[in-house]
Design a protein around this nucleic acid. Structure first.
Lengths: 210, 210
DNA sequence: TAGACTAGATACTGTAACTATCCAGTGAGG
DNA sequence: CCTCACTGGATAGTTACAGTATCTAGTCTA
């Protein structure tokens, strides 16, 4: 398949494909000659995946690169690969860097209470959670710290379901694809459901109210 | 309070404050004279809120403007105000515009099954949900359509809890602030919890596995 | 064998969110 | 009274990101 054909079937412009190859998101085609390369179904799949992640998930190009690198590293276990995927997909929005003891303790407490015993003690996500807790406390949201307990079983059930969706008979690239798509697209799905539920519950409580 | 003092207490630069005033995110200070205006606690609160929404939630400036406008419109009911907040906060990432009958029907079916009877039949969020469903189906995720049923009671419980957090004895501006912060910051909180739960469940299933 | 196409390098564009400069005019401290 | 840091308002410049466009020199294919 020539580059123009790849562009046509995926709806991604030739210029963008070249850009992605430059950035290492897509392997160069198999060289047929100095000025001609061959692209195959792998390229089509990869390109489609990249576009979904960017269009729907707004995943920055740098994060996509990290994802690709994690998939490529064949020495790592599936679990490690998934871990690197989570790291790459964590939107690095600014939460306090948290040198704060208290919020970090709260975060650890939440993880413990949820029963997530397999989470590394030094997982970077713990710090992010602590940062978010700090923002919540500082912003004067009326969230009682115990309130988190309400969320935990629900989140746990959702995450367990997410992981059960992954077909572990497939190769690692396919599993990675499912994991990443699940994280991003099902994440959007959940956010959308939450907004719909908000509309419903808001109507129950505040319709007609000034 | 002078503008430089406002800048110092909030950690936002004078230039940025001027920019926000220009964009209508922040009311100009009360004019004391041609070249001097007075800023008060309202400005401090508003500015802090804007920064949390931008830093943590990556809410674009245009959406912040829409939020401010929704709060200002005092004729609308609280529920309508919340609805406009949801519209403004919906990240407009590209999902198919969905002229597609099938996915739209699936979306409506999900809302019905969840029992969210108060969601308007023409709510724009329904279309977005349909678009996301289309992406899920197209991308070959192994999500059975029934799988959504797993999420529904969980999401409903979360949303109900979110709304219960809002103190309805306060004024509309305070309620709006709680709603918006809840949507954005608790949204990040949930995503963070989900990633932690993913790590745990991934370890249970795939640790040591190649 | 001409016209369309290609890999690879380099340069340019558009948007969002600031950031800096300039201007002329206060107003507080000396 | 003087001066000088500071101000509101306007306008122009900057940075980062994600592409686009152009150019070169060579290669297929009809």
């Amino acid at each position: 398949m020539r580059i123009s054909e790849l562009a046509d079937t995926t709806g991604v412009s030739v210029a963008t494909i070249k850009y992605y190859v430059r950035e290492g998101l897509l392997s160069p085609g198999r060289k047929l000659s100095e000025r001609l390369a061959d692209y195959d179904d792998q390229h089509v799949r990869r390109l489609r995946l990249l576009r979904v992640l960017r269009d729907v998930g707004s995943v920055p190009v740098g994060a996509l690169k990290a994802l690709v690198d994690a998939t490529q590293d064949r020495r790592a276990s599936v679990h490690d690969m998934f871990g690197r995927a989570c790291d790459a997909l964590r939107t690095e929005t600014a939460v306090p860097e948290v040198p704060d003891e208290h919020t970090r303790a709260l975060a650890d407490q939440i993880v413990a209470r949820a029963g997530w015993t397999k989470v590394r003690p030094d997982a970077p996500e713990r710090d992010r959670l602590a940062g978010i807790i700090k923002v919540i406390l500082d912003s004067g949201l009326p969230t009682d710290p115990e309130g988190a307990a309400t969320y935990l079983p629900l989140v746990d059930a959702i995450a367990a379901y997410d992981l059960d969706q992954i077909d572990d008979t497939r190769d690692r690239e396919a599993m990675m694809e499912q994991m990443v798509l699940g994280q991003v697209v099902l994440g959007e799905f959940l956010l959308s459901l939450r907004r719909l539920a908000h509309e419903h519950h808001s109507a129950l409580r505040f319709a007609g109210r000034r």
